[in-house]
Design a binder for these strands. Structure first.
Lengths: 194, 194
DNA sequence: CCTACCGATCGGTAGG
DNA sequence: CCTACCGATCGGTAGG
């Protein structure tokens, strides 16, 4: 499982160059964060000066929101498909976890590492990111609703804990020791209570 | 349980004013992050201009490292004491989790929310933070080593997952619904497998 | 602790 | 896509 389908929006025109810039920007944002990435950084990777990028994009804010939402669209799509291939509620959960983990940990991931940057981002941007993320998390809400959990477990907390676990895996993950699938399996083992 | 003992280093001289500045800085760093907090912001809260702070501190970097390490010292101390009050390995784990969670979620927490800022920080600073954090995590390493876990569970992964869970709780936690102790209990329930 | 400033960097724009 | 620049902000310093 790799992350090769680029989660980038279809450009409106002159789109091939624009896509290239978006890919570069996504990679930089993912690696160095919103504030840690300057327009000049993006320009440098693209072989132009920072100011020249404004022919293709409206603003840094708008670019980030666009990339973030496109990444969540792609992630949601992959996860929904992975879930559909399973029948058992626990199998569905594991498929969803393995897919999200794969997205978060893929070495070429231009996707979600920026999902947790909320504090780094201007308020107007933050509101848009949170709205999209909340929608994304509904997939997991419905997944958790179907689990035969013991009544003592709080499902809302359970969902938050699981998502937090998956979304921050890149903080501690180092390639080589355990496979991503093995990690997903261990997480689901931990969360499996009935 | 509150977080009232300020985790701040003893000043060398003129220390009362210095302590005050450190408290203000810790609060701002915790709330807005390393890059999101300017020396001028800290000065404003302290009633002086940004440049005036340099009479009390050497640099922004050094201030952040100092606050971070002092916070970890205080956290480690509280956790070690909480563990010592318990005999059973699972009870020890729950005491440690409840304490760390309390530190991370205390509304007046000037402590660890900055523990996860690693990407926001200059490299030389990052290395120092990581070294101190690794030492902190040894407490949990020994805690996990004492648990009667099923052999299928990877203890290194288990520790990383647990710490990630506790350290990022502030991302989703909203006061009012579940108590911090209740959340800690649910986390330990999830992680309890034998 | 302030005034006054430094060199660097930022997002963004005008005008070609 | 570049040149040339804007106003703002940053960490930090000299000199008092």
């Amino acid at each position: 499982m790799t992350n090769s389908t680029a989660p980038l929006p279809a450009g409106d025109e002159g789109s091939s160059r624009r896509r290239q810039i978006c890919e570069i920007a996504a990679q930089l944002f993912a690696r160095k964060g919103y504030r840690g990435t300057s327009m000049r950084d993006i320009g440098e990777q693209a072989g132009v000066l920072g100011g020249s990028l404004y022919h293709h994009i409206k603003s840094k804010d708008a670019l980030f929101v666009e990339l973030h939402n496109a990444a969540l669209d792609a992630a949601e799509d992959r996860i929904v498909r992975a879930i559909a291939a399973q029948a058992d509620p626990w199998a569905k959960l594991e498929a969803a976890c393995a897919t999200l983990l794969d997205i978060q940990l893929a070495p070429d991931s231009l996707t979600l590492p920026m999902m947790n940057d909320f504090r780094e981002v201007p308020e107007t941007v933050r509101d848009q990111l949170i709205a999209r993320r909340d929608r994304f998390e509904r997939v997991f809400q419905s997944l958790v609703a179907q689990l035969p959990l013991p009544p003592a477990i709080d499902r809302s907390l359970y969902r938050n804990l699981l998502l937090s676990q998956l979304n921050h895996a890149a903080d501690w993950y180092r390639p080589g020791r355990l496979s991503i699938a093995a990690i997903a399996a261990q997480i689901v083992t931990l969360f499996r209570h009935e």
